[in-house]
Design a protein around this nucleic acid. Structure first.
Lengths: 357, 357
DNA sequence: ACCGCCAATCGAATCGATTCGACAGGCGAA
DNA sequence: TTCGCCTGTCGAATCGATTCGATTGGCGGT
């Protein structure tokens, strides 16, 4: 038992052929015994499994199997940020959870990739995968799309700008944000500002310029911005460098400095909104009496604030599941249709009528 | 350009052989032209690349390549929890970040696996991987270890109990925790309780029993517990169901109920400690005057608390990097030695001498 | 008694690359 | 001039499985 009898000496893993030989059957039969496809006599199967045990054979080599079958059992998730950054966003985490859950039960595993193509090797270009999910939450995925579609990998975009050959999972960013803005408008707010998600690949901070507002790289951020501007056409906006509390804080400070008469701030994500609340409190402003704050996402964030944020809730786990299901459907050769979810405004205690001045 | 000339009709991806044929060279030469290994005349390479472009060939198939070379370019990370749970722990995220960074620059990608072996297919058993990192933060990894070592995959354990054939990256959990406990002792504390990490696979909550304290599945939690008990041999302990703020809150409530004379609570992670702070505040206790709280990890947690937690800091990103480097070294056939990091006590404002009673 | 069918097994082709050894030709050194 | 070496290219073997079609033997139906 200590040293399994290995014809090739030890160190080398046994092959199916060796197992078959030892069991006195052909490789084809041994393969059937392992995979369960095709009829095999119980007694034969037992003999094969016994031989495998004796040789310490752990089952067919995934590499060979995947060459032959054309399937690797891997679904890739392509993100733009490095892990440390991306995973601080609860939306990304819940999305991934939904994805992992769904593909896991289907027998697939999850490969985590970033879309940097600079590296000569590794990554997008030559990782094995059966399908790819692109999390295009903010910036440019075009190069990744090009490489992967050349490799004929089915592509699912999550909140990404529509592209030929890519199926989509989306939410009604614009409508949802508009509903939120209307809520503020109904309360009487007129001087409202926005903190947006990053607008370019470099994640540059700063006031939103017309150039950015016309660019097309930041799909989600732009859609949500449109939603606000549908109600408040002139709302000033500051671009954050990421969906993070600190970024919301920095951006909100800038907004409060530049526009002393603001009565409400809209964060394009809950984390940004929480940063805005911090900025307000920092200056002695009470939320919601002195400043209303609205978020987007509906993230459940650990006792992070004494407030219940008023926010536009999106079904993030479901989004992940749906994306995974689209990928699985594409792999099964089924007709794939894009999916769109709807958001819902959840009232908390961070919005109220503006204080009379 | 729209429809690349594909001899096999479209839909089917071109193969290296087809590209070679079109370029008028042999498959071997075409391979060399792509991989850069071996001498190829510039003019020939150009011809090959041109042919590839014409056929819309995106480079060698990873599956075939990995069968031939025996390398898949994938390093797996095996966690015990589902993503949503695991990724709420900042330590896991930073660890992963370190890992991803290091293996990424080496041209490898990261496969995320959970250690559930229940599923018949997919996952540990047949995902392709060149090495595996086991995050054994708390519970039982034995079955996973068995499967993977049978597959001859180099194994690196991060804070896992030593096992034959597995290299380790560890920190001085016991010493570090002892240093923290000594700090409390020096301040004058005598009645100290602990909130521990999960102690079994099922993540059962409840007071720590002798049975648990002798079990061997929860390596990290037990080591840290020993560190405390080196100083406070009788310190009562409650087991949390996860490294989460809510869990710390629940556990601390139980501790405060059961031991009204406590002057300090030690959380085995920062999140647990933060939960303890919340529990204290909930009862009108002031931290650190009425209750000192000590954490472990040194997580940077977004403005989550008004306190700067006194905690035992571990180099979590470095731990990830080190684990990744061990894996890469093992793949390079180098001699691999286990690595141990040391922790450092960082004083914040959550510990103080106990209030006189 | 014969035919057809099904279960069980096997042989051989195949998936798409990499790589080793061989070979041809050109060049410099002795 | 000749020998050896280096460069560029090719053919063939190989990685380890899966799978298709063929083969064999046993069995029930008529």
């Amino acid at each position: 038992m200590a040293t399994p009898a290995n014809p090739a000496g030890d160190g080398a893993r046994a092959t199916l052929a060796q197992v078959a030989a030892r069991a006195g059957v052909s490789a084809s039969t041994a393969s059937l015994a392992f995979s369960g496809a095709g009829p095999v006599a119980d007694e034969t199967r037992e003999r094969v499994l016994a031989a495998a045990r004796e040789l310490d054979y752990g089952g067919p080599d995934p590499r060979a199997r995947s060459l032959r079958t054309g399937r690797s059992g891997i679904i890739a998730v392509v993100m733009e940020d490095r892990i440390r950054v991306a995973f601080r966003d609860p939306m990304v985490v819940t999305l991934l959870d939904g994805i992992a859950d769904e593909i896991g039960t289907a027998g697939y595993s999850l490969l985590l990739l970033t879309d940097s193509l600079e590296r000569a090797e590794g990554g997008l270009r030559d990782a094995p995968m059966d399908a790819a999910l692109l999390l295009g939450c903010s910036t440019d995925l075009d190069p990744a799309v090009r490489v992967l579609s050349q490799r004929q990998v089915p592509l699912i975009g999550v909140e990404a700008e529509p592209r030929p050959g890519m199926h989509l999972v989306d939410i009604d960013n614009r409508d949802g944000m508009r509903a939120g803005a209307e809520h503020l408008h109904d309360l009487g707010h007129r001087r409202v500002a926005v903190i947006t998600l990053p607008m370019d690949r470099e994640h540059t901070r700063g006031p939103l310029t017309a150039e950015w507002a016309e660019s097309s790289v930041a799909y989600t951020g732009l859609e949500r911005l449109k939603g606000v501007r549908d109600v408040f056409p002139d709302a000033p906006a500051v671009v954050a460098a990421g969906s993070l509390i600190e970024e919301g804080l920095v951006a909100a400070r800038a907004l409060l400095d530049a526009h002393s008469d603001l009565t409400a701030i809209i964060g394009q994500s809950d984390l940004l909104a929480l940063g805005a609340i911090q900025a307000a409190e920092e200056r002695g402003l009470t939320v919601p009496d002195d400043l209303s704050v609205l978020g987007f996402d509906g993230a459940r964030i650990d006792g992070l604030s004494r407030h219940r944020l008023t926010t536009v809730v999106q079904p993030s786990v479901e989004k992940g599941r749906a994306a995974a299901r689209l990928a699985l459907a594409a792999l099964a050769g089924e007709q794939v249709e894009s999916v769109a979810f709807t958001t819902e405004l959840r009232l908390g205690d961070t919005t109220a009528p503006p204080r009379e001045r």
